[in-house]
Design a protein around this nucleic acid. Sequence first.
DNA 1: TTGTACGCGTTATCAG
DNA 2: CTGATAACGCGTACAA
Lengths: 337, 337
Amino acid sequence: MRHFTTIKDIAKKLGVSTSTVSRALADRWDINPKTRELVLETARAMNYKPNPMAVMLSKHQTKTIGIIIPEFYNSFFPTVIEGIQDVLQKTGHKLLIMQSKESMETERVNMEFLENCMVDGIILAITQEGENVEQYRGLIERSIPIVFISRASMQVNAPRVMIDNYKMSFAAVEHLILTGRRHIAHISGPVSLNITGDRTKGYLDALAKYGLEEDRSLIVPGGMVLEGGYEAACTLLKSKRNIDAIFAFNDHAAIGAMRYLKEVGVSIPEDIAIVGFSESHSALVVEPRLTSVAQPLTEMGRKAAEIILKLIDNKKFPEMNVCLEAQLNIRESSFKI
Amino acid sequence: MRHFTTIKDIAKKLGVSTSTVSRALADRWDINPKTRELVLETARAMNYKPNPMAVMLSKHQTKTIGIIIPEFYNSFFPTVIEGIQDVLQKTGHKLLIMQSKESMETERVNMEFLENCMVDGIILAITQEGENVEQYRGLIERSIPIVFISRASMQVNAPRVMIDNYKMSFAAVEHLILTGRRHIAHISGPVSLNITGDRTKGYLDALAKYGLEEDRSLIVPGGMVLEGGYEAACTLLKSKRNIDAIFAFNDHAAIGAMRYLKEVGVSIPEDIAIVGFSESHSALVVEPRLTSVAQPLTEMGRKAAEIILKLIDNKKFPEMNVCLEAQLNIRESSFKI
DNA sequence: TTGTACGCGTTATCAG
DNA sequence: CTGATAACGCGTACAA
């Protein structure tokens, strides 16, 4: 076992007490500037590094925050995490990343694990299976702050960092209407997610604004994966022959739909225009390139990190609902000059 | 501050000493089975959880391992991490994920950070900028084991978990030859990466095996991103008109090349066949779908995790070079019936 | 088989 | 301003 320099070593060398050293290192007021300088200098000379385990034990803080995301196979959450790490790096906090894999059960296990690790706070995007409301509340009661990101629980009183899904969905559909589409279908997302409802509502309200009749059979569940979008498009085309646009819950569903349309010889965007959501890598690779709503992911991460840090030391709730600006990126899948 | 049950509480309640409780919990031999049962039961009843910080301090182990990867924007490393977490979850280890962002400097900072966090070991994929050989050695000397994954340093004596890049590259090019291609170009990767050399060598040796003449001007550096592949294809087509296949360092470069070829009206695979490497999401989204070498990513992760755990408690080197089987997935970008 | 006592490295509380 | 001293929660020689 290698020996690390401790405050004891410094104290011994300088003939002072450990508390003096501790005070000097903590840069507190009740210390002689000269002694402080001396301590700091010898600390540097002896290559002193505070032992984080001891600090933790003593301060009851791990300087670790946990994050539970549904997956990081797609670049969505990794990009969010980049933002989080930007902020945490500056404060020396560690980040423990867990995947719920869209399973409520796994999410619970992860929460327990993080609590056992004594993380100081948790950032969370709920699963598509549903919300572990009890557990979220439990954590907060046991004074482990939570911040929701991208996908939030509305039944729990904790900060949320999101975009305005309703507004962007509305904008996406409005774009389709303004470019001449009149028979717009919607591939909807997982029912238990709030954002699914928001996006569907945005779709419906955009139709309403322009006096287009609401036809519930134009809304087909497709979920968030390619296969779901493919199936949904298949269902749609078989029942409705006059569709001229599809607004999908996300890019994967949109790309799945595109795949089906191509297979049956429908041309995009001439016959049917397509719009996705939450701009993925694939949006720029697929042909034609996909119109989609780009979310400010790193900014979301940064914001969430800032909030959780505030929560950790103030124990006061700062902004409860942070809403960031997203952006509709129009590409050839919906509009070609 | 909430109070957690400690061994003291249990000891007091049972009228025994803390060491007895500790022994019982540790399931050691020098304890009366009856007392042990009693302790275990009351521990459960009192909802006792060992305080990880105290355990750390006392055992000088954080039960945390760190991983430094170039990026997790693409699904490559996240998938590797899935495998790592599979293994670590069972042993209750935590994983600290850091990104070097392909920068040697950032890698160094990350290593320092992880060392300050007192991680028990580090899994590492080196950056495309180069190798921090000194620092790797330093860590090992200070008895922090390292395992390289996917991208390794050959100048450091530490386990490596990889695929056989040479062999798979050879196989990829052989596939092109066997399907009738005779003028095969290569878009090569970052020069400072060993795997770049391996893949280029595989390319050259496959040509040699079939008596195709080696033409160095058919090898163009393209790096690992789409733009690089685009540029490389442009360069290639401008100098050589008779190319009938391109083998790219990875999928991004391959897709970049495809983009250029399409723009100038070259048809894939009829005129030019394309093969990528390290199968990305996009391989299945791009049109035509991309032939690529799929790596056993989660398995790589699992293997690396197992090795680092062994290293941590045995301090003995297990397998030094783990080589996993990869697979060439043939798709329409290189071969159409 | 059990208990005592100390160490782990730091912070915090009191005296002085 | 500084120094003892006691936590923090657990592990572990050593003694009993």
